[in-house]
Simulated assay, not measured.
Amino acid sequence: MADIAIIVPTLRRPESLGRALRSLFAQTGVADRVSAIVVVDNDPVGSAAATVEALRTRSPWPLTCVHAPHPGVATARNAGLAATGAPLIAFLDDDEAAAPGWLAALLKAQAATGADVIFGPITGRAPDAAPWLRAHMERFFGREGPDRTQLINRPFGCGNSLMVRATALPGPAPFDPGADQAGGEDDALFAALSARGGRFGWAADAWVEEFAPAHRATLNYALARAFAYGQGPSQTAAAARDWPGVARWMAIGAAQAAVWGAVSAALTVIASPRRAEMYDRTARGVGKLLWMKGFEPRFYGAREVARLDGAKV
Protein backbone atom coordinates (compact mmCIF):
# COMPACT_ATOMS: atom_id res chain seq x y z
CA MET A 1 0.00 0.00 0.00
CA ALA A 2 1.45 3.36 -1.08
CA ASP A 3 0.91 5.39 2.09
CA ILE A 4 4.02 7.59 2.42
CA ALA A 5 4.94 10.88 0.76
CA ILE A 6 8.44 12.33 1.05
CA ILE A 7 8.56 16.15 1.15
CA VAL A 8 11.74 18.01 0.18
CA PRO A 9 11.57 21.81 0.57
CA THR A 10 14.24 23.63 -1.46
CA LEU A 11 15.49 27.13 -2.20
CA ARG A 12 18.06 27.66 -4.97
CA ARG A 13 20.27 24.67 -4.24
CA PRO A 14 20.20 22.75 -7.54
CA GLU A 15 23.27 20.59 -6.91
CA SER A 16 22.25 19.83 -3.34
CA LEU A 17 18.67 19.11 -4.38
CA GLY A 18 19.89 16.73 -7.06
CA ARG A 19 21.98 14.85 -4.48
CA ALA A 20 19.01 14.62 -2.10
CA LEU A 21 16.69 13.31 -4.81
CA ARG A 22 19.16 10.73 -6.10
CA SER A 23 19.50 9.43 -2.53
CA LEU A 24 15.71 9.02 -2.38
CA PHE A 25 15.59 7.17 -5.70
CA ALA A 26 18.03 4.64 -4.19
CA GLN A 27 15.85 3.76 -1.18
CA THR A 28 15.47 0.03 -0.55
CA GLY A 29 12.68 -2.06 0.94
CA VAL A 30 9.95 0.55 0.40
CA ALA A 31 9.03 0.12 -3.27
CA ASP A 32 5.32 -0.40 -2.56
CA ARG A 33 5.02 2.17 0.22
CA VAL A 34 5.92 5.49 -1.41
CA SER A 35 3.07 7.38 -3.07
CA ALA A 36 5.11 10.42 -4.16
CA ILE A 37 8.18 12.55 -3.72
CA VAL A 38 7.08 16.19 -3.39
CA VAL A 39 9.68 18.87 -4.03
CA VAL A 40 8.56 22.29 -2.79
CA ASP A 41 10.29 25.04 -4.74
CA ASN A 42 10.35 28.02 -2.38
CA ASP A 43 12.12 30.34 -4.83
CA PRO A 44 9.90 33.19 -6.10
CA VAL A 45 11.22 32.59 -9.64
CA GLY A 46 10.68 28.83 -9.53
CA SER A 47 14.27 27.76 -10.14
CA ALA A 48 13.96 24.12 -8.98
CA ALA A 49 11.78 22.97 -11.86
CA ALA A 50 14.73 22.33 -14.17
CA THR A 51 16.47 20.09 -11.64
CA VAL A 52 13.29 18.11 -11.00
CA GLU A 53 12.56 17.69 -14.72
CA ALA A 54 16.11 16.50 -15.41
CA LEU A 55 15.73 13.74 -12.81
CA ARG A 56 12.09 12.81 -13.34
CA THR A 57 12.74 9.72 -15.44
CA ARG A 58 15.08 8.33 -12.77
CA SER A 59 12.47 8.42 -10.02
CA PRO A 60 10.85 5.08 -9.13
CA TRP A 61 7.78 6.97 -7.83
CA PRO A 62 5.74 9.98 -8.94
CA LEU A 63 7.91 13.09 -8.61
CA THR A 64 6.00 16.34 -8.08
CA CYS A 65 7.33 19.89 -8.01
CA VAL A 66 5.13 22.39 -6.16
CA HIS A 67 5.87 26.10 -6.44
CA ALA A 68 5.48 28.02 -3.16
CA PRO A 69 6.64 31.49 -4.28
CA HIS A 70 6.40 33.20 -0.89
CA PRO A 71 9.78 32.41 0.71
CA GLY A 72 9.51 30.84 4.16
CA VAL A 73 10.27 27.52 5.75
CA ALA A 74 6.82 26.99 7.30
CA THR A 75 5.05 28.05 4.12
CA ALA A 76 7.14 25.56 2.14
CA ARG A 77 6.32 22.68 4.46
CA ASN A 78 2.61 23.52 4.40
CA ALA A 79 2.65 23.65 0.59
CA GLY A 80 4.20 20.19 0.47
CA LEU A 81 1.50 18.82 2.74
CA ALA A 82 -1.24 20.40 0.61
CA ALA A 83 0.10 18.53 -2.42
CA THR A 84 -0.40 15.06 -0.95
CA GLY A 85 -3.02 13.20 1.04
CA ALA A 86 -0.62 10.51 2.24
CA PRO A 87 -1.22 9.44 5.86
CA LEU A 88 2.53 9.21 6.56
CA ILE A 89 4.88 12.09 5.78
CA ALA A 90 8.67 11.91 5.66
CA PHE A 91 10.74 15.10 5.54
CA LEU A 92 14.20 15.35 4.02
CA ASP A 93 15.96 18.71 3.73
CA ASP A 94 17.53 19.69 0.42
CA ASP A 95 21.01 19.74 1.98
CA GLU A 96 20.67 16.15 3.18
CA ALA A 97 21.36 12.81 1.50
CA ALA A 98 19.67 9.68 2.84
CA ALA A 99 21.30 6.28 3.23
CA PRO A 100 19.63 3.54 1.13
CA GLY A 101 17.84 2.07 4.15
CA TRP A 102 16.75 5.43 5.58
CA LEU A 103 13.02 5.34 4.91
CA ALA A 104 12.69 1.63 5.71
CA ALA A 105 14.37 2.28 9.08
CA LEU A 106 11.98 5.15 9.88
CA LEU A 107 8.98 2.99 9.04
CA LYS A 108 10.24 0.06 11.07
CA ALA A 109 10.81 2.34 14.07
CA GLN A 110 7.34 3.84 13.79
CA ALA A 111 5.75 0.40 13.66
CA ALA A 112 7.80 -0.76 16.66
CA THR A 113 7.22 2.28 18.88
CA GLY A 114 3.84 3.62 17.76
CA ALA A 115 5.30 7.13 17.98
CA ASP A 116 3.62 10.07 16.25
CA VAL A 117 6.98 11.38 15.03
CA ILE A 118 10.19 9.45 14.38
CA PHE A 119 13.62 11.07 14.08
CA GLY A 120 16.89 9.65 12.82
CA PRO A 121 20.62 10.39 13.22
CA ILE A 122 22.52 12.86 11.04
CA THR A 123 26.19 12.93 10.09
CA GLY A 124 27.26 16.54 9.61
CA ARG A 125 29.62 17.48 6.78
CA ALA A 126 31.30 20.92 6.68
CA PRO A 127 34.14 20.71 4.15
CA ASP A 128 34.37 24.49 3.79
CA ALA A 129 34.73 25.24 7.50
CA ALA A 130 38.02 26.56 8.85
CA PRO A 131 40.25 23.65 9.95
CA TRP A 132 40.08 24.55 13.64
CA LEU A 133 36.29 24.85 13.44
CA ARG A 134 35.43 21.86 11.23
CA ALA A 135 34.93 19.26 13.96
CA HIS A 136 32.57 21.57 15.85
CA MET A 137 30.62 22.47 12.73
CA GLU A 138 30.18 18.83 11.77
CA ARG A 139 28.84 18.10 15.26
CA PHE A 140 26.64 21.20 15.01
CA PHE A 141 25.05 20.08 11.75
CA GLY A 142 24.87 16.47 12.92
CA ARG A 143 22.42 14.77 15.24
CA GLU A 144 23.06 12.10 17.83
CA GLY A 145 20.63 9.96 19.79
CA PRO A 146 20.26 6.55 21.41
CA ASP A 147 22.15 3.65 19.90
CA ARG A 148 18.94 1.65 19.53
CA THR A 149 15.44 2.32 18.24
CA GLN A 150 13.12 3.43 21.03
CA LEU A 151 10.71 6.09 22.32
CA ILE A 152 12.43 9.32 23.35
CA ASN A 153 11.29 12.16 25.58
CA ARG A 154 12.19 15.13 23.40
CA PRO A 155 11.85 16.08 19.73
CA PHE A 156 14.48 17.13 17.21
CA GLY A 157 14.00 19.05 13.94
CA CYS A 158 11.92 18.19 10.89
CA GLY A 159 14.85 17.24 8.70
CA ASN A 160 15.14 13.42 8.75
CA SER A 161 11.76 12.64 10.25
CA LEU A 162 8.62 10.59 9.68
CA MET A 163 5.26 11.86 10.94
CA VAL A 164 1.82 10.33 11.34
CA ARG A 165 -0.28 12.95 9.65
CA ALA A 166 -3.50 12.44 11.62
CA THR A 167 -1.87 13.08 14.98
CA ALA A 168 1.33 15.06 14.33
CA LEU A 169 0.16 17.35 11.51
CA PRO A 170 -3.34 18.59 12.34
CA GLY A 171 -5.25 20.89 10.02
CA PRO A 172 -4.44 22.09 6.51
CA ALA A 173 -1.48 24.27 7.57
CA PRO A 174 0.08 22.84 10.75
CA PHE A 175 3.31 24.85 10.46
CA ASP A 176 3.05 28.45 11.66
CA PRO A 177 3.89 30.90 8.84
CA GLY A 178 4.92 33.36 11.52
CA ALA A 179 8.13 31.32 11.72
CA ASP A 180 8.90 31.71 8.01
CA GLN A 181 11.93 33.95 8.50
CA ALA A 182 13.47 32.78 11.76
CA GLY A 183 12.55 29.09 11.76
CA GLY A 184 11.33 27.25 14.83
CA GLU A 185 8.13 26.14 13.11
CA ASP A 186 8.94 22.57 14.06
CA ASP A 187 9.58 23.49 17.70
CA ALA A 188 6.09 24.98 17.97
CA LEU A 189 4.52 22.01 16.20
CA PHE A 190 6.21 19.49 18.47
CA ALA A 191 5.48 21.47 21.65
CA ALA A 192 1.78 21.40 20.75
CA LEU A 193 1.96 17.68 19.97
CA SER A 194 3.63 16.98 23.30
CA ALA A 195 0.91 18.97 25.10
CA ARG A 196 -1.66 16.71 23.43
CA GLY A 197 0.12 13.62 24.71
CA GLY A 198 1.95 12.84 21.48
CA ARG A 199 4.96 10.56 21.45
CA PHE A 200 8.39 10.85 19.83
CA GLY A 201 10.59 8.01 18.66
CA TRP A 202 14.13 7.40 17.46
CA ALA A 203 15.21 5.25 14.50
CA ALA A 204 18.85 4.41 15.19
CA ASP A 205 19.49 3.14 11.65
CA ALA A 206 17.76 5.96 9.69
CA TRP A 207 20.96 7.78 8.71
CA VAL A 208 21.32 10.87 6.58
CA GLU A 209 24.27 13.13 5.84
CA GLU A 210 23.82 16.90 6.04
CA PHE A 211 26.15 19.06 3.95
CA ALA A 212 26.65 22.59 5.25
CA PRO A 213 27.04 25.10 2.39
CA ALA A 214 30.03 27.40 2.63
CA HIS A 215 28.07 30.42 3.88
CA ARG A 216 26.73 28.37 6.79
CA ALA A 217 29.99 26.65 7.70
CA THR A 218 31.10 29.68 9.71
CA LEU A 219 31.30 30.52 13.38
CA ASN A 220 28.98 33.52 13.00
CA TYR A 221 26.24 31.41 11.45
CA ALA A 222 26.62 28.64 14.04
CA LEU A 223 26.42 31.09 16.93
CA ALA A 224 23.36 32.82 15.49
CA ARG A 225 21.67 29.44 15.20
CA ALA A 226 22.77 28.49 18.72
CA PHE A 227 21.28 31.75 20.01
CA ALA A 228 18.00 30.94 18.23
CA TYR A 229 17.99 27.39 19.63
CA GLY A 230 18.49 28.88 23.08
CA GLN A 231 15.47 31.14 22.59
CA GLY A 232 13.24 28.13 21.95
CA PRO A 233 12.43 27.01 25.52
CA SER A 234 11.71 30.54 26.73
CA GLN A 235 9.58 31.33 23.67
CA THR A 236 7.62 28.09 24.03
CA ALA A 237 6.88 28.88 27.69
CA ALA A 238 5.88 32.45 26.79
CA ALA A 239 3.53 31.22 24.05
CA ALA A 240 1.81 29.05 26.68
CA ARG A 241 1.72 32.03 29.08
CA ASP A 242 3.75 29.98 31.51
CA TRP A 243 5.48 32.96 33.08
CA PRO A 244 7.09 30.97 35.93
CA GLY A 245 8.49 28.73 33.20
CA VAL A 246 9.83 31.76 31.34
CA ALA A 247 11.49 32.99 34.55
CA ARG A 248 13.02 29.56 35.13
CA TRP A 249 14.46 29.37 31.61
CA MET A 250 15.81 32.90 31.88
CA ALA A 251 17.54 32.01 35.16
CA ILE A 252 19.03 28.92 33.54
CA GLY A 253 20.16 31.05 30.60
CA ALA A 254 21.82 33.61 32.86
CA ALA A 255 23.76 30.87 34.65
CA GLN A 256 24.80 29.26 31.36
CA ALA A 257 25.91 32.57 29.88
CA ALA A 258 27.99 33.42 32.95
CA VAL A 259 29.65 30.01 33.37
CA TRP A 260 30.27 29.16 29.72
CA GLY A 261 31.18 32.74 28.90
CA ALA A 262 33.98 32.60 31.45
CA VAL A 263 35.18 29.25 30.09
CA SER A 264 35.01 30.65 26.54
CA ALA A 265 37.23 33.57 27.50
CA ALA A 266 39.84 31.28 29.02
CA LEU A 267 39.90 28.95 26.01
CA THR A 268 40.11 31.91 23.63
CA VAL A 269 43.29 33.09 25.35
CA ILE A 270 44.99 29.76 24.62
CA ALA A 271 43.36 29.40 21.16
CA SER A 272 41.85 26.03 22.03
CA PRO A 273 39.65 24.49 19.32
CA ARG A 274 37.19 23.67 22.12
CA ARG A 275 36.37 27.34 22.39
CA ALA A 276 33.81 26.94 19.59
CA GLU A 277 31.77 24.54 21.73
CA MET A 278 31.88 26.96 24.66
CA TYR A 279 30.84 29.87 22.43
CA ASP A 280 27.89 27.74 21.37
CA ARG A 281 26.83 27.02 24.95
CA THR A 282 27.19 30.70 25.86
CA ALA A 283 25.05 31.75 22.89
CA ARG A 284 22.33 29.30 23.87
CA GLY A 285 22.30 30.74 27.37
CA VAL A 286 22.03 34.30 26.07
CA GLY A 287 19.19 33.17 23.81
CA LYS A 288 17.18 32.00 26.82
CA LEU A 289 17.54 35.50 28.25
CA LEU A 290 16.80 37.46 25.06
CA TRP A 291 13.83 35.50 23.80
CA MET A 292 11.56 38.48 23.08
CA LYS A 293 10.37 39.69 19.69
CA GLY A 294 12.97 41.83 18.00
CA PHE A 295 15.86 39.56 18.95
CA GLU A 296 15.06 36.65 16.61
CA PRO A 297 17.79 36.02 14.02
CA ARG A 298 16.57 35.63 10.42
CA PHE A 299 17.81 32.61 8.49
CA TYR A 300 15.13 31.81 5.94
CA GLY A 301 12.58 33.29 3.61
CA ALA A 302 13.14 36.78 2.23
CA ARG A 303 16.52 37.13 3.94
CA GLU A 304 17.89 34.02 2.26
CA VAL A 305 16.53 35.12 -1.13
CA ALA A 306 18.17 38.53 -0.65
CA ARG A 307 21.48 36.87 0.21
CA LEU A 308 21.30 34.71 -2.91
CA ASP A 309 20.48 37.79 -4.99
CA GLY A 310 23.57 39.52 -3.61
CA ALA A 311 21.64 42.19 -1.75
CA LYS A 312 22.59 43.52 1.67
CA VAL A 313 21.09 41.38 4.45
Results as ranks from 00 to 15, higher is better:
Ile89Gly: 11
Ile89Pro: 08
Ile89Phe: 15
Ile89Ser: 13
Ile89Leu: 14
Ala90Ser: 15
Ala90Arg: 13
Ala90Leu: 13
Ala90Trp: 14
Ala90Val: 14
Phe91Arg: 08
Phe91Ile: 14
Phe91Leu: 10
Phe91Ser: 11
Phe91Pro: 08
Phe91Met: 14
Leu92Arg: 10
Asp93Arg: 02
Asp93Ser: 12
Asp94His: 13
Asp94Tyr: 07
Asp95Glu: 07
Asp95Cys: 00
Asp95Ile: 00
Asp95Pro: 00
Asp95Tyr: 01
Asp95Asn: 05
Asp95Ala: 00
Glu96Val: 05
Glu96Gly: 04
Ala97Asp: 04
Ala97Asn: 09
Ala97Lys: 15
Ala97Leu: 15
Ala97Glu: 15
Ala98Met: 12
Ala98Tyr: 06
Ala99Met: 12
Ala99Val: 11
Ala99Pro: 00
Pro100His: 02
Pro100Lys: 06
Gly101Arg: 03
Gly101Ser: 00
Gly101Asp: 03
Gly101Lys: 07
Gly101Leu: 08
Trp102Glu: 03
Trp102Gly: 00
Trp102Tyr: 06
Trp102Thr: 01
Leu103Cys: 15
Leu103Arg: 11
Leu103Val: 14
Ala104Pro: 06
Ala105Asn: 05
Ala105Pro: 05
Ala105Trp: 10
Ala105Asp: 00
Leu106Trp: 01
Leu106Gly: 09
Leu107Val: 01
Leu107Arg: 01
Lys108Asn: 04
Lys108Arg: 15
Lys108Glu: 13
Lys108Pro: 09
Ala109Asn: 04
Ala109Phe: 05
Ala109Val: 04
Gln110Arg: 08
Gln110Asn: 11
Gln110Ile: 10
Ala111Ile: 02
Ala111Met: 02
Ala111Arg: 14
Ala111His: 02
Ala112Gly: 15
Ala112Arg: 13
Ala112Cys: 12
Ala112Thr: 09
Thr113Ala: 01
Thr113Met: 08
Thr113Cys: 04
Thr113Leu: 12
Gly114Phe: 09
Gly114Asn: 08
Gly114Cys: 04
Gly114Pro: 12
Ala115Tyr: 10
Ala115Phe: 01
Ala115Val: 04
Ala115Trp: 09
Ala115Pro: 08
Ala115Arg: 07
Asp116Asn: 15
Asp116Lys: 11
Asp116Val: 13
Val117Ala: 14
Val117Asn: 01
Val117Asp: 02
Ile118Leu: 13
Ile118Gly: 13
Ile118Cys: 13
Phe119Asn: 03
Phe119Asp: 00
Gly120Met: 15
Gly120Gln: 10
Pro121Gly: 03
Pro121Ile: 02
Pro121Glu: 10
Ile122Gln: 10
Ile122Asp: 04
Ile122Phe: 06
Ile122Gly: 06
